[in-house]
Design a protein around this nucleic acid. Structure first.
Lengths: 191, 191
DNA sequence: TAATGAAAATGACCGTGGTCAATATAAATT
DNA sequence: AATTTATATTGACCACGGTCATTTTCATTA
């Protein structure tokens, strides 16, 4: 009794996503307008909101998919043997997340699941990131006085901090990877 | 030749802020509408935007002032002698920042200075928070293998993480102070 | 105190995200 | 095939933040 989704539905949704992705490729995330998306997809405005709760929901889907693909690549990498290597493993992810100020804002807004029932795509990638990093930290040359998952939580917190400071006009002498390295050195290898 | 600000200007600005604060007190931050503010203040809509770049700028001012007042109190407290005490010192601040989801969003959005010239009120409080915490950490019973300011940066990063998870429907078994204590224990007292 | 220039206030107007009753289309039932 | 029910689509409409040419008020100078 759960089966009810028509083929038409999936087609329309795919058209909307495709249109949005075209626009993003051409003009960037922040330039995307719902009006423009529905026009390119050849549907009415109301249809958009029959498929996505709001504009953010579409962004969550698109950005979430890209982060997920990035995590696929990262997941293939071998366990980093020091902090520098860990940071460089993470850099593609951080670059993706900071490619636009608007993108970072969307990600932060969606990084936590608002409702238990429906965990958004971005929120899921945040959970997955913890898993991937925790696996590395478990058998890497890092401190083991605390659980690897806690360490991974910290890596995430420091990553967000480093990304936030990347958009900050003050304290911007230091580049993102350098700052993150400083943080994670202190976090993962206390003396 | 810098002097040009009229008395009228300050009065109008004060009226706008007062109106906004009344509305916030009665209905909460997220319910505040610019239209409502100007109506209560008895000015035209355009006037609002002659005084504030956008709605967020007024929020930045109001929320920033409240955080600053909270930091005044916190600044008076004695140096915490352990992590539990540090967390309880910080709790008023975290409660203020998480009193509404909307408030937390505004704070995150403004925690970094967008332009070097004009650092917003909230961004300033973030700088001040680092100073206050760093002073504590310098002569407290915590690790000293890294600079106190770096430790304070970490306290901020973990605080943001704890607050973000507070609004997250999943991982919500643990309360904010408990989670923050776990983080800071690992951060400030590695074994 | 009248004239002049500068700063402040005004409100009609716009862009954009989001709503919803009405309509059209597909699937199920007779 | 005709009828009924469920689902998808439509587009006029609304809410709300933000703009700007015009007008009003204030301060300065003649």
């Amino acid at each position: 009794m759960v089966k009810a989704v028509q083929k038409r539905t999936l087609e329309t949704r795919a058209k909307l996503v495709a249109a949005a992705e075209e626009i993003i490729a051409a003009e960037g995330y922040s330039a995307m307008r719902v009006e423009q998306v529905v026009q390119k997809a050849g549907v009415a405005k109301g249809t958009f909101f029959a498929h996505f709760a709001d504009k953010d929901a579409l962004m969550d889907r698109i950005i979430g998919a890209r982060i997920d693909a990035c995590l696929d690549d990262i997941d293939k990498l071998s366990t980093p043997k020091n902090v520098e290597s860990l940071v460089s493993h993470l850099m593609p992810l951080l670059h993706l997340m900071t490619c636009e100020r608007y993108v970072f804002d969307v990600i932060v807004r969606h990084s936590g699941a608002a409702a238990k029932e429906e965990i958004g795509a971005i929120a899921q990638t945040f959970g997955r990131q913890i898993e991937v990093v925790a696996r590395w930290l478990e058998d890497g040359p890092f401190r083991n006085d605390v659980p690897a998952e806690l360490l991974a939580d910290g890596v995430q917190a420091f990553s967000v901090q480093a990304m936030a400071l990347h958009f900050c006009a003050v304290n911007n002498e230091q580049a993102m990877p350098a700052r993150l390295t400083t943080y994670l050195d202190a976090w993962l290898n206390p003396r």
